[in-house]
Design a protein around this nucleic acid. Sequence first.
DNA 1: ATGGCCGTAGAATACGGA
Length: 256
Amino acid sequence: MRIATYNINGINARLPVLLQWLEEEKPDVVCLQELKSPDEKIPKKAIEDAGYNAIWHGQKRWNGVAILAKGMEIKELERGLPGDPDDVQSRYLEAVVNELVIGCIYLPNGNPAPGPKLEYKLRWYERLTARAAELIEYEVPAILVGDYNVMPTELDTYKPEKYKNDALFLPEVREAFHNLVAQGWTDALRKLYPGEEIYTFYDYFRNAYGRNAGLRIDHFLLSPHLNKKLVSGGVDKHVRGWEKTSDHCPAWIELK
DNA sequence: ATGGCCGTAGAATACGGA
């Protein structure tokens, strides 16, 4: 089973890119982030015509997450991240697909830091860590996948010093990510490519893609059960070079 | 140190993104 994540940066503006990529790669499950669309404007029919069932948690203007599955049932478990009834931002969607728990994640950016946005990000990490602990406790096969808005190590940014005061690379944010992983999760792409440069995001500015000035901020975390089922994975880097494309690349893993 | 590029809302420009 091939599972992909893609921060689409506006599902309606990027629909041709999304459909082209689905047609080329045919992933079994897709987690999308940054839909930037209210629920009623999600291009439901185009997704269905491409062969996918889908659930989504949209919002006007910003955020928004969706889970797509090719010819498989999607049973929704959580809409929104538990732990704060006042959090109105659409950043978490969790479902069972093919007996696998899939959490689709769009973590807050946190900039400018320090400030309330960083505080929200850190609280969000705490809530995600609490939910992740429950999944570990249930001993279910689970994958937490999406845009974590963190470069976990210096290897994950083309220029570490440029980001040392950035909310994507601050020590407390990296620590929050490492604390989550330390519950027993596996960072799948890093496991497959130890010591290698793997980028999933390229800024629109300054020809970042052309210069390979990237960041690795989209991650797959595998529960202990799934660790040994990881076969392969990668980043569909070429999609970042398409017209009217997102600033993120799709990334994927294959589970046996 | 700054601003460069995008989408969205909505009608000019502000905001969020990373």
